[in-house]
């Protein structure tokens, strides 16, 4: 009788250890899927491009300084207001871009990884199911078969729209071993469709509809 109890106890211990081992492998597998660089030179290229953008920022700042000093004050202020209107989310914006559709929910960190990739490639505005990503709407969480985007509950299918250089964005995310491949590898039943669009429309953010 005692022997039977001992065997049951040992079996339970083995089961727990196996489960821990499996979980540990799964965690590492997921981390690798999310973060393993395809090529370290690709990452360094991203750094090189970042410096290139900083050089462009420096040129823009210098030009803005020259213009501010030479223009009529009203003109400079108007330009700044126009630029802020595009970025603030208060107005509907449009432009060429891409549309990425997921037919079902995924772990929301994949959305952040995808959006980060789109931004690196030049996305100037991003929305999920027409909710524009702003500091008032950022923050994702999985809830059942849906996604909570701060205070918006979104249901599948999930449509991520990004305004920016459509060909570059499409190539970056849909390349072999790219973010879309990684998401599909981790979610074999999920269907992801990536499509370039001549015109993407992202509606203005409506504070009241999020309450």
């Amino acid at each position: 009788m005692n022997k039977n109890k001992a065997i049951i106890l040992i079996a339970i211990i083995i089961g727990v250890l196996l489960a821990l081992q499996y979980r540990s492998f799964r965690e590492i597998e997921l981390l690798v899927q999310r973060t393993e660089p395809e090529n370290i030179f690709t990452e360094l290229r991203v750094f090189q491009v970042a410096n290139k953008q900083l050089r462009a920022n420096l040129d823009v700042t210098k030009r803005a300084l020259d213009e501010t000093q030479s223009k009529l004050s009203r003109e400079a202020i108007d330009e700044e207001i126009q630029r802020l209107k595009l970025l603030s989310g208060e107005q509907t914006v449009s432009g060429e871009g891409i549309e990425v559709t997921f037919d079902a929910a995924v772990k929301t960190f994949w959305l952040n990884d995808l959006i980060s990739q789109l931004v690196v490639t030049g996305a100037e505005a991003v929305a999920i199911n027409d909710v524009r990503l702003l500091d008032r709407t950022a923050g994702f969480r999985d809830i059942g078969d849906g996604i909570l985007m701060r205070r918006y509950f979104l249901r599948p299918p999930f449509k991520i729209t990004a305004i920016g250089p459509r060909t570059e964005m499409q190539s970056a995310i849909a390349q072999s071993g790219g973010i879309v491949d990684r998401i599909e590898d981790a979610n074999p039943t999920l269907k992801i469709i990536v499509a370039e669009r001549e015109k993407i429309i992202i509606p203005a953010f409506n504070e009241e509809s999020s309450q």
Binding site: N57, A64, L86, L87
Partner: peptide
């Protein structure tokens, strides 16, 4: 304050 030039974003 990003000085990034907005090349694609337009008011709809």
């Amino acid at each position: 304050e990003s000085r990034r030039t907005l090349k694609f974003l337009k008011l709809h």
